[in-house]
Design a protein around this nucleic acid. Structure first.
Lengths: 234, 234
DNA sequence: TGTACATCAGTGAACGCGCGTTCACTGATGTAC
DNA sequence: TGTACATCAGTGAACGCGCGTTCACTGATGTAC
């Protein structure tokens, strides 16, 4: 009787959306199948895109669903809620941060130079992926019990300590250091993290503007990194 | 005819709310008048209360209206929108930050000690009023054209440079310094800001936990501040 | 000192928005036999 | 190799929530005369 195999569904607001039978004949765009196959990964990529384009405010489950072209309830199965997506994204960010530091310091022998290189890697990541970097600090939005995030955090701390590559991928092993070393590490981390944060928040412009020979904050940061051995002021 | 002077208003859902005629006879609680008198200040206080209690997420125009007990459209007249309230609040925060640094360093003569004291003032403020401190960095929520905020920011930078009190309240005058001084200031600021940020974000616990003799992040920070002259690590 | 009137400050009902969540469902895939 | 059935993945309508905004209004205050 019915030529279209549509059973007793109530309504089809957009019937042109799924043309499953003509999939191959329609062109090279394969018809989107009911089962995506790699929806989780697609959603994460979409989430990153939305984060860059619309900022953290626009990053909702509905937004990433729209981006992928999937029902807005689909993400629930893969991430429980928004914090699930954000936590995964933050974990990815920590891995990239670690990779950036490792890459910048790769093969640098001199210890001081090595530390400067790690600092550059840290700040480069923060500047180039500032929204992601910011997200990584937004604890109230992240699921603190997320395992991947925990592992990724430990990994980036390890890369910061410059011990990545020296040990194998034992990122879960504790990094035992003594007190003095911990204090130095804290100080160094704080220094670099503060530079990165102030830089992407455009706060250094104020200082740059009042200095005689500096007219860009990036130059200020470069000079500050070069100093590396510092006192609080003057 | 009518004993109550209620004219042709449609409905009174909560008639007990405003008992204007019995104001004095009712007790020492004065009946809330139609005109508040200092609504702007009351709303700002309420905003700070809400910020502490519910965090930034709960800080809405409707929330602060509820807190004061006023119609939820009342704040519109005093602050245009939410960013107006947040900007005023951030400005207050900058003033308090400046005051904290000034107070801690007051009367400290030795230059290095003075800088440590300023750092303690910075970090104390961040820890004690962490939500407010965080708000001050949330540029996307603040009205960058807000004049009070701009002035307050310049003031806190000035206090950070340790020049507060040496000059009069000329907070709008430019703070002319040379390049070397600017680099030092930037480095010092970054260091202290990073310590404060990592501390209130509970990020230092990770380092503290892996150090042999430190089991609290606060101790780590205290030690880091005491060092003050640092290299990136080790 | 009193009166008229403009202006200011706050009210409360109504609306639209985008969000997350629930629910019964359908389409696709995997597995037992 | 084929068939039955359970399980998994995605759908889309519906709902409730809290928010900001608009609007016509009312109550209080200030000012001109």
């Amino acid at each position: 009787m019915n030529e279209v195999p549509t059973p007793n569904r109530k309504a089809r607001p957009d019937p042109g959306k799924k043309d499953k039978l003509q999939s191959v004949a329609e062109g090279d765009v394969p018809a989107r199948p009911y089962h995506h196959g790699a929806l989780r990964e697609a959603l994460l990529e979409a989430a990153e895109l939305v984060l860059r384009r619309d900022g953290l405010r626009g990053l909702t489950l509905r937004a990433i669903s729209r981006e992928v072209g999937v029902s807005h309830t689909a993400p629930q199965r893969h991430f429980n809620d928004t914090s699930g997506v954000l936590s995964e994204l933050a974990a990815i960010g920590h891995h990239r941060l670690a990779a950036s530091m490792a890459k910048h310091s790769e093969g640098v022998g001199d210890e001081l130079e090595r530390r400067k290189a790690i600092a550059r890697g840290y700040i480069s990541f923060a500047v180039e992926q500032s929204e992601l970097f910011r997200l990584m600090s937004r604890n109230e939005l992240l699921d603190q019990s997320n395992e991947a995030l925990g592992i990724a955090r430990r990994m980036s701390i390890r890369a910061l300590a410059g011990t990545i590559g020296q040990e194998t991928a034992q990122e879960s092993a504790p990094l035992a250091i003594d007190t003095a070393r911990a204090v130095e590490m804290t100080a160094g981390w704080a220094y670099v993290h503060g530079l990165a944060t102030l830089l992407i928040d455009d706060r250094l412009d104020g200082v740059a503007r009042i200095a005689d020979n500096i007219d860009d904050a990036a130059g200020l940061v470069a000079a500050a990194i070069e100093r590396m051995r510092l006192t609080l002021a003057d």
